[in-house]
Amino acid sequence: MPSQPGQKRPHRKWRSAIIAIVCLATFLFFGVVSMIINAQPSTRPFAGWVAVLQPDDEPMVDHVGLIVEPWVPGAPGTHPGLTYSVVVCGDRPFHGILVIGGDARLTDLRQSGLTSIGPDRPAGHDIPDLVVDDIGFGKRLDLGETQIVDFDFASVEPCLPTSPTPSISGVAARFTGTAGASIQRHWNFGWWSAPRQSQAWPRIGALGGSPPGDLGSFVGVTGLSGSWGRPPMETFRVDVGTLTAQTSVDAALPASTEPMGLGWEMSSPFQPSARLTDTSALGRWQPTLVIASILLGLGGGVLATQLFEWSRAKPAIDVPDRDPPTAPQLVRSDLARAGQKPLHAKPFLRPSGLLIASTAVVASAAVWIVRMARRRSR
Rank of each mutant, 00 (worst) to 15 (best):
F27I: 14
F27S: 12
F27K: 15
L28N: 11
L28G: 04
L28H: 07
F29V: 05
F29L: 04
F30Y: 07
G31C: 06
G31W: 11
G31R: 11
V32N: 10
V33L: 07
V33N: 09
S34H: 13
S34W: 13
S34F: 01
M35W: 02
I36P: 03
I36Q: 14
I36D: 00
I36A: 13
I37R: 14
N38W: 01
N38D: 12
Q40G: 08
Q40V: 14
P41R: 08
S42V: 03
S42N: 13
S42W: 04
T43K: 12
T43C: 12
R44L: 03
P45F: 07
P45T: 11
P45D: 09
P45E: 12
P45Y: 03
F46G: 02
F46I: 10
F46C: 03
F46D: 13
A47L: 07
A47E: 10
A47P: 00
A47D: 11
G48I: 09
W49H: 09
W49V: 08
V50M: 04
V52G: 02
L53F: 07
L53K: 06
L53T: 07
L53I: 12
Q54A: 02
Q54E: 15
P55Y: 01
P55I: 05
D57Y: 10
D57Q: 05
D57L: 02
D57W: 11
E58V: 13
E58C: 04
E58W: 02
E58D: 00
P59G: 04
P59M: 03
M60L: 14
M60K: 03
M60H: 06
V61F: 05
V61W: 00
D62A: 14
V64T: 08
V64C: 08
V64D: 06
V64A: 04
V64S: 01
G65A: 00
G65P: 00
G65M: 05
G65I: 05
L66Q: 08
L66R: 10
L66A: 12
I67E: 11
I67Y: 04
I67S: 06
V68L: 15
V68N: 07
V68K: 02
V68D: 00
V68T: 10
E69Q: 15
P70S: 02
P70T: 01
W71N: 05
W71D: 14
V72T: 13
V72C: 09
P73K: 13
G74H: 04
G74Y: 00
P76L: 11
P76A: 12
T78S: 12
T78N: 09
T78L: 13
T78H: 07
